[in-house]
Amino acid sequence: MNLGGPRDSDEVFPFLHRLFADPDIIPLPMQKHIAPWIARRRTPKIIDQYNKIGGGSPIRRWTERQGELMSALLDKLSPATAPHKAYIGFRYAAPLTEDAIQTMLADGVTRAVAFTQYPQYSCSTTGSSLNELWRRTTELDSEQRIRWSVIDRWGTHPGLIEAFSQNILTKLASYPKDRRDSVVILYSAHSLPMSVVNRGDPYPPEVAATVDAVTKRLAQDGVRNPYRLVWQSQVGPSAWLGPQTNDAIHGLATQGHQDQLLVPIAFTSDHIETLFELDLEYGEEAKKAGVTGLKRVESLNDSPVFVRALADLVRDHLAEAKPVSAQWLLRCPGCKNDTCAQTRRFFGKECVSVPLP
């Protein structure tokens, strides 16, 4: 499960419409009516951005490759549960969640793992995807032919931390040796509206936990560079979690920090937020600020270390035989969304060790 992205200009408006119509990710007043207006207004700008990175999002290609490599490795690591097959259920672009379910039913699937590709949990990302999975499952599989379990978060998994760390070490090595230790590492993650944060969304501390784990892993190789956790992709005038990545780049530049290394710490593959926002948009802003040493760590994509982490996660999850985690069963303290409650009851119905909300 992931957000997805338009493959060409024709898919940009439908993608944006689904995105802005989803109250789990961007809560708006009169959302049903205002979402198409916002989508139409932003479509030309977003098409231009996609044209600058090749005309469409590569997220489907990377997700397909990750799934194929993971499944092949799983067949070797866990022959008792083989064969394994990865199905893609994107939230806002094809193949959508309902496409995945229909294909799985046609293939005769009876056991499935809903595996979020957002390592750190947020109601706006994993939560929204699971809510949609519940809605579409009750609609398309009322007989519950498919038995589900959920991998809802894995931001501190050792394999993920190792994959991030190896990519950071590789990029740090590209700086001159006499400047390498002073490079400021900026861990950049997608921001959230403060209204979502304030109702108790666990995403900010989970991203911070990933950063902390990576920092400790880098220290094992003697890397103790200064760092900050920053946030990107704010949309609209309302308050969002900060500091914004772009503002951090400018602020550090005024303090004399010319060498800055961007790390996409909450994304598992390249897409518009890495290829356009980090590479092109922030790269141009850095030049204006006089930053001469801005670089970006490679995304995980098809890193063998990362693929092994995916396979290990699924293998261990299947062996544990728990449908959901105790953490996922706990709703945000300020949650008033009944869909969240119904989703947890549905996917957690087999979990007898943790009381349902």
Rank of each mutant, 00 (worst) to 15 (best):
L3E: 02
R7E: 15
S9Y: 12
E11C: 11
E11F: 07
V12N: 11
A21Q: 04
A21R: 13
D22N: 10
I25D: 08
L28R: 07
P29I: 06
Q31F: 11
P36E: 10
R40L: 11
R41F: 05
K45F: 09
I46A: 02
I46H: 14
Q49G: 04
Q49C: 04
N51D: 15
G54Y: 15
G56L: 08
S57W: 05
R60D: 15
R61N: 11
L69D: 15
S71W: 11
L77S: 03
S78H: 12
T81V: 09
H84M: 02
K85N: 01
I88Q: 04
F90Y: 09
Y92R: 06
T97M: 15
T97P: 01
A100D: 10
T103C: 09
G108T: 06
T110A: 03
A112R: 06
A112S: 11
A114T: 08
F115H: 03
Y118A: 11
Y118K: 03
Y121M: 01
T125R: 02
S128M: 06
L130T: 05
R135E: 14
R135V: 04
T138D: 06
E139H: 10
S142H: 13
D152W: 05
T156R: 14
H157N: 07
P158T: 05
L160F: 15
L160W: 15
L160G: 02
I161N: 04
I161D: 07
A163R: 03
Q166T: 12
N167W: 03
Y175T: 02
Y175R: 00
P176S: 10
D178M: 11
D178P: 01
R180I: 03
Y187A: 10
A189P: 13
L192N: 05
L192G: 01
S195K: 12
N198A: 04
V207F: 11
R217L: 13
D221S: 15
G222E: 12
V223T: 09
N225L: 07
P226W: 10
Y227A: 07
R228N: 11
L229S: 04
V230R: 03
W231Y: 13
W231C: 00
A239N: 13
L241A: 00
G242R: 06
A253I: 01
T254I: 12
H257F: 14
Q260P: 02
L261G: 01
L262W: 08
V263P: 00
S269A: 15
D270P: 00
I272G: 01
T274G: 00
F276R: 00
L278D: 14
E285S: 12
A286L: 00
K287C: 03
K287E: 12
K287F: 09
V291T: 01
L294D: 02
L294P: 04
L294R: 14
V297F: 06
V297N: 05
V297P: 04
N301V: 10
D302F: 01
P304M: 12
V305Q: 07
R308L: 10
D312W: 10
L313T: 13
R315M: 05
A319T: 14
E320R: 14
A321I: 08
S325G: 01
L330G: 00
R331A: 10
C332M: 06
G334K: 04
G334T: 03
G334C: 06
A341Y: 13
A341N: 05
Q342N: 14
R344H: 11
F347E: 02
